[in-house]
């Protein structure tokens, strides 16, 4: 059987025995999602790439401690999230120092983490409005409290199941649901406030569906 077709569990077993190729398959399988998760915290591609690579290295050394009680995927995503938060704290401290010393701004490394799903047949005006709606949504997401934001992003932008979100964050499913409900309620109130979400939703309507 080809290594790339093996399950996560089989690859983890091989990697534990020192098979770097098997671990390489795991890297290839989860690198994109790892970067997306890190990016949702760090909002910077280079930092996210670095954080996810660190997380893979930590996971490699931590495989001996991985007992298979949780899925490798959620165990690894938790490492990514913690690594990203760790880097975020360091960068924030560095950014503050640069800001205080007048050598930069606090948010100079912040990049947009969302992009529009390409939609056909949009007029330039519709495309512009869709872009504005995307920015408005992104701002609203980052106005949420940390936990609610994490839950919302993992569930609706990374597409994880509720149980996977709970495993990744190390909290109960009930807590995930509560955070999600609060997050959605706050997003609605933020988005509905001045401009009206109806018009923004309308401008994104041609954007295609995601599962």
């Amino acid at each position: 059987m080809e290594t790339t077709a093996l399950s996560d569990e089989a690859l983890v077993t091989k990697a534990r025995q020192g098979d770097r190729d098997a671990f390489g398959v795991l890297v290839h399988r989860y690198q994109a999602q790892a970067i997306l998760i890190a990016q949702s915290v760090l909002r910077n591609f280079e930092l996210s790439k670095d954080a996810s690579q660190n997380a893979f290295a930590k996971a490699y050394f931590g495989l001996a401690r991985f007992r298979g009680e949780a899925k490798f995927k959620t165990w690894f995503f938790r490492i990514v999230l913690n690594e990203a938060k760790d880097i975020y704290r360091k960068e924030k401290a560095r950014g503050l120092f640069k800001f205080w010393s007048g050598r930069g701004t606090e948010d100079e490394n912040v990049e947009s983490v969302l992009e529009l799903i390409p939609a056909g047949g949009q007029s330039p005006r519709e495309a512009f409005e869709a872009q504005e709606a995307k920015q408005h949504l992104e701002r609203a997401i980052y106005e949420l409290p940390e936990r609610e934001r994490e839950v919302f992003i993992l569930r609706y932008l990374n597409g994880l199941e509720l149980s996977e979100v709970a495993d990744t964050l190390g909290i109960a499913i009930g807590t995930v649901k509560a955070h999600l409900a609060h997050g959605i309620q706050k997003l609605r109130s933020i988005l509905l406030a001045p401009a009206g979400v109806q018009s923004q939703a309308g401008s994104l309507q041609g954007g295609g569906a995601r599962g």
Binding site: S40, S48, K49, V113, L114, L137, L157, N158, Q200, G208
Partner: peptide
């Protein structure tokens, strides 16, 4: 709104 966007891929 959410279905019209996705996380930016590297």
């Amino acid at each position: 709104l959410v279905k019209g966007v996705k996380l930016k891929e590297p």
